[in-house]
Amino acid sequence: MPNVRIPTPLRKYTQGREEVTIAGQTVGSVLDGLEQSYPGIKERICDEAGKVRRFVNVFVGEDDIRFLDNLATAVKDSDEISIVPAIAGG
């Protein structure tokens, strides 16, 4: 199952876990699975229309999904999905 890397501000949903494995064939289905396991987390990543919020970056490996197929981007079991927020001050 794909590995999902969770950033610090979202770890309160994952009981502090930095990485979780979630089944899914696309980034979108992995995020849905993430929500099932950790309720409340998806709305921090996606807006009401279900699209990734414009200030959140989701990567499959090294690639931003905006330059792939967004939430329809296919993922393999060996893939790593990273949810990367903006950087705080200083």
Binding site: L10, R54, F55, V56, P85, A88, G89, G90
Partner: peptide, 16 residues
Amino acid sequence: DDAMHGLEGMKHLPSS
């Protein structure tokens, strides 16, 4: 207003 934000350079102190 939230820990997960996009105002790069600003700090959300309750979670920092």
